[in-house]
Computed example of a mutant assay.
Amino acid sequence: MLNVNEYFDGQVKSIGFQGQDKPASVGVMAVGEYRFSTAAPELMVVVSGELQVQLPGESGWQSFKAGEQFNVAADSAFDVKVPVETAYLCVYG
């Protein structure tokens, strides 16, 4: 079953699905700045574009481009700056 979600007044859109091993979502973020909260651990993979990310507990920003990935702990929040429209894959758990 596919679950379509929209966040930040439609600036972030995703489609959730059951991956082979874990739940996942694929989506697109418009240029902007966003704060996301996590319930489960997340593996974020940049498919196209770039995400500038401030991970929980970090004071600096890191840049992730197409083909790169990062992890976010459960029950936390992270900030994202999106300099160009960006596609991502998120795997939960």
Results as ranks from 00 to 15, higher is better:
residue 12 V to N: 08
residue 82 V to N: 05
residue 73 A to W: 01
residue 53 V to Q: 04
residue 46 V to F: 07
residue 82 V to C: 12
residue 16 G to I: 00
residue 60 G to H: 11
residue 42 E to A: 14
residue 15 I to N: 03
residue 25 S to G: 09
residue 81 K to E: 14
residue 28 V to T: 09
residue 41 P to W: 01
residue 50 E to H: 06
residue 41 P to Y: 03
residue 11 Q to Y: 02
residue 84 V to Q: 12
residue 82 V to L: 06
residue 21 D to E: 15
residue 16 G to V: 00
residue 66 A to P: 02
residue 11 Q to C: 03
residue 15 I to G: 04
residue 40 A to L: 14
residue 20 Q to V: 04
residue 49 G to W: 00
residue 40 A to V: 08
residue 82 V to T: 13
residue 50 E to Y: 01
residue 59 S to K: 09
residue 20 Q to D: 03
residue 46 V to T: 09
residue 63 S to D: 12
residue 59 S to R: 11
residue 10 G to T: 02
residue 77 A to F: 06
residue 83 P to A: 10
residue 55 L to K: 14
residue 67 G to R: 15
residue 80 V to K: 10
residue 12 V to R: 00
residue 70 F to M: 11
residue 47 V to F: 01
residue 26 V to K: 07
residue 31 V to C: 06
residue 16 G to P: 00
residue 75 D to V: 00
residue 35 R to V: 15
residue 80 V to F: 03
residue 24 A to H: 02
residue 78 F to D: 02
residue 44 M to K: 13
residue 33 E to D: 10
residue 60 G to F: 07
residue 48 S to E: 15
residue 15 I to A: 13
residue 34 Y to Q: 11
residue 54 Q to H: 05
residue 51 L to C: 06
residue 39 A to Q: 13
residue 81 K to T: 04
residue 50 E to R: 10
residue 10 G to W: 00
residue 21 D to W: 08
residue 43 L to H: 09
residue 62 Q to P: 00
residue 68 E to Q: 08
residue 67 G to F: 07
residue 82 V to R: 07
residue 16 G to L: 05
residue 21 D to K: 14
residue 20 Q to R: 15
residue 52 Q to S: 08
residue 49 G to C: 05
residue 65 K to G: 09
residue 42 E to D: 10
residue 25 S to Q: 14
residue 36 F to H: 09
residue 39 A to S: 11
residue 23 P to H: 05
residue 76 S to Q: 06
residue 55 L to H: 05
residue 40 A to G: 08
residue 74 A to C: 02
residue 14 S to R: 15
residue 28 V to C: 10
residue 30 A to N: 11
